[in-house]
Design a protein around this nucleic acid. Structure first.
Length: 153
DNA sequence: GCCAACGTTGGC
DNA sequence: GCCAACGTTGGC
């Protein structure tokens, strides 16, 4: 059982969308490190912090879990799609996505609050210049955040 | 809109 | 393999 933080822009797809949909395919990741996390390391039931980025109030907005293991991202094969990748073929797909299921919408835990917690100082999201859309979360960080949000593990 | 930081591309 | 140029991310 591992834990992850996954960023999404709420103007594109936010926690309310996830709760409405129940689950979603995490397509569109075009970064090798983030892809490798999904393809190689995520397991069913892994915990996910759903994070709102590039918005007026960036922060953790909800909890989710990995509900389907990685499979080829369909958008890479679609020439009309903005995530089309001409270097990919169905025989040699380059990009993968997992699916994520909503557990619940939480109160927003703003980036500033995360930054203010010494227990969370090691989080990747706080490291200078980190732009990775998917990052691993330590079990202790996960537990601390859940406690802080008034959730039980 | 600004800008720092980073990943990717491509010429050599 | 190097590295400059470019594009993107994301907080502010």
């Amino acid at each position: 059982m591992r834990y992850w933080l996954m960023k999404s822009e709420p103007s594109e797809y936010g926690i309310d969308d996830l709760v409405r949909d129940g689950s979603v395919a995490w397509f569109g990741v075009r970064n090798y490190q983030a892809r490798n996390f999904m393809r190689d390391e995520m397991r069913l039931g892994d915990g996910v912090l759903f994070y709102h980025s590039s918005c007026p109030e960036p922060g953790i907005a909800g909890l989710a879990e990995v509900s389907r293991l990685a499979y080829p991202d369909a958008t890479q094969f679609d020439p009309r799609h903005k995530y089309f990748d001409p270097r990919s073929t169905p025989q040699a797909p380059r990009w993968f996505n997992v699916e994520v299921r909503a557990l619940k919408k939480t109160r927003l835990m703003p980036l500033a609050e995360i930054r203010g917690c010494p227990e969370l100082a090691g989080m990747k999201i706080l490291q200078r210049g980190n732009r990775l859309s998917i990052t691993p979360v330590e079990p202790a960080e996960w537990a601390f955040i859940l406690a802080r949000l008034g959730e039980t593990a």
